[in-house]
Amino acid sequence: MVIWTIANQKGGVGKTTTTVTLGGLLAERGHRVLLVDMDPHASLTYYFGIDAEELEVSVYDIFTRGKTITREEILQSLCPSTAERLDILPASMSLATLDRSMGNKGGMGLILKKALKLISRDYDYVLVDCPPVMGVLMVNALAACDRVLIPVQTEFLALKGLERMIATMALMRNAQQELAFTIIPTMYDKRTKASLEAYKELKAKYQDRVWSAVVPVDTKFRDASLAQTPPNVFAGTSRGVFAYNTLLTYLLQLGPEA
């Protein structure tokens, strides 16, 4: 089982879109895929029409149960998506209380990693959608993954968010080996100077850590979310889906430490 964490300490850069689209494309290629929503805002959960406020069981229970949770209980907490071979481990608003209630307890940083290990034979890929803040949830998502995918909107303020994200991963290096990561330029609009300059700065500063292509602005992403369907199912020939398909091929060719 391969685990990718999609993270950035700035909101609105395309984390959930990246999670859903890559997950949908992996499922389309025949893989068994689990999407994990670690954000208390539950955007990924709501994307698929799952009401976070009505859930009896969610990813929150993995944290409150800790070592006592079983594989069967985790599988029972999953929700099917609107696409084949694609399941959701949904979020609930209760996640927002974890830092206050459990942030100082020992061993909190590896709870997600241990839980996913219990279902490692059930899925080929797990994609974890992170909140845009440093805390117990992001630490767990980073500790659990094989690679961090960092969507970065091609505009100046998003570059500042990327700097914070890189600094956070450097702190994590104290606890484990260096995290492999790929920077994904998103919401690129070739008609604007802001996108052109931001992309140029990304490539100059982070070089081969940046995926060589871009995800363009595409209204089909918004339409797909309204339809509660992965973009590749809703509009498989759109330019945005084409870009993510190219990205996925690139990621699958990378070695685990690249």
Rank of each mutant, 00 (worst) to 15 (best):
K113S: 12
V20N: 06
D61F: 01
A194Y: 06
V59S: 02
G240R: 09
I119E: 11
T45L: 06
D122P: 06
Q153A: 14
Q228M: 13
A224T: 06
A52N: 07
R121G: 14
A194R: 08
L78G: 07
D189V: 10
H31Q: 11
E201A: 04
L112M: 05
L162T: 03
I69F: 04
S101L: 15
V20I: 14
L247Y: 12
E54V: 10
D208Q: 12
T19D: 00
A143P: 00
A115E: 01
E56G: 15
T229Y: 06
Y125C: 06
A91R: 01
G107E: 03
Y188R: 09
W4G: 00
I150W: 05
R191S: 15
K200Y: 01
L55G: 10
V217T: 10
N140P: 04
R32C: 04
R147S: 03
C130G: 00
K200H: 04
P216K: 10
G103T: 12
T219N: 06
I111K: 06
L162A: 08
L25T: 06
T168Y: 02
L142W: 01
R173S: 12
S212G: 12
A227F: 11
Q176D: 07
A42K: 02
V57C: 03
M172T: 05
T16G: 01
F234A: 15
E257D: 13
L202D: 02
T5Q: 00
A115K: 01
L226Q: 14
P185V: 10
L142Q: 01
F234L: 04
